[in-house]
Nucleic acid binder design. Sequence first.
DNA 1: CGGAATCCTATCGGATACTG
DNA 2: CAGTATCCGATAGGATTCCG
Lengths: 147, 147
Amino acid sequence: MRHAASEPPVDEGHPTETHAADGQELTPTARGRTVRPEPDCPVEVALTAVSGRWATLVPRELMGGPLGFSELRERLPELSAKVLSQRLRELCERGLLSVERRRGFPVRTCYTLTGRGRALRPLLIELYATGEALLATGPAAGASPRG
Amino acid sequence: MRHAASEPPVDEGHPTETHAADGQELTPTARGRTVRPEPDCPVEVALTAVSGRWATLVPRELMGGPLGFSELRERLPELSAKVLSQRLRELCERGLLSVERRRGFPVRTCYTLTGRGRALRPLLIELYATGEALLATGPAAGASPRG
DNA sequence: CGGAATCCTATCGGATACTG
DNA sequence: CAGTATCCGATAGGATTCCG
């Protein structure tokens, strides 16, 4: 189901403002005009990459350079080992992270963002910007627990 | 815990590329340098606004102009009434949506994005762009169920 | 039409304990 | 050090039913 350029506009007044009136296409390609949350819709793909608790904080820490498991735990003390390794595994599966194991004793592991992983940066920045905009226009309305 | 400009860099070579090396600050204000997913961190605020199944599709439909409950259901046929009203309620509570009830018979309700709601647009666009970038660099790695 | 109430299942994420 | 295994409580969200 398309939402742009079809169906008589509900309240078109002047094209100057009102509520943007889709002046610029929201979804450049067909994959964005989905009727349901399909996993191959770009929006869902991006959302999948950042959703889940701690899912933004782990990449954020790694934006500064490679880190080991325990280093990540130090930086995010309240993140349990279970969830951390879960997040790391997801990031790896999605090709956002590369792992390097150094044998010997003690064992050393090194997590590095890949090019794909670094591609999250603009999204994190936009999330930050949007969040600030929301906080600025009404501090009370942002909260609400998120898994 | 800060992640920028502290602790000896792990692999600083030349500042040209490598992995961006935080050349530009990721988190302009202090609220972004959190140790845990705090609800008042801008990133969390924005994420809260778009996370949850159908959470982006409902605003997307409304970007084209106000719609009623059933109109939304028509456009998103697989979205149950329960979840739709849940999403709408959340959007209202966060001040992203305004509601107008027209009495008479049958009852008519009209959901309109507020200014705050329209502030989500750049984020949706960025989500789309990031998702496309991920799909472009490796189609297989995007998927994975998202609640 | 526009919902709210109830039920039910799957998954998420935290705590704890154990392993190579 | 770098994880895995197990248990467990809390939601999320779909289906169905009912109401003003």
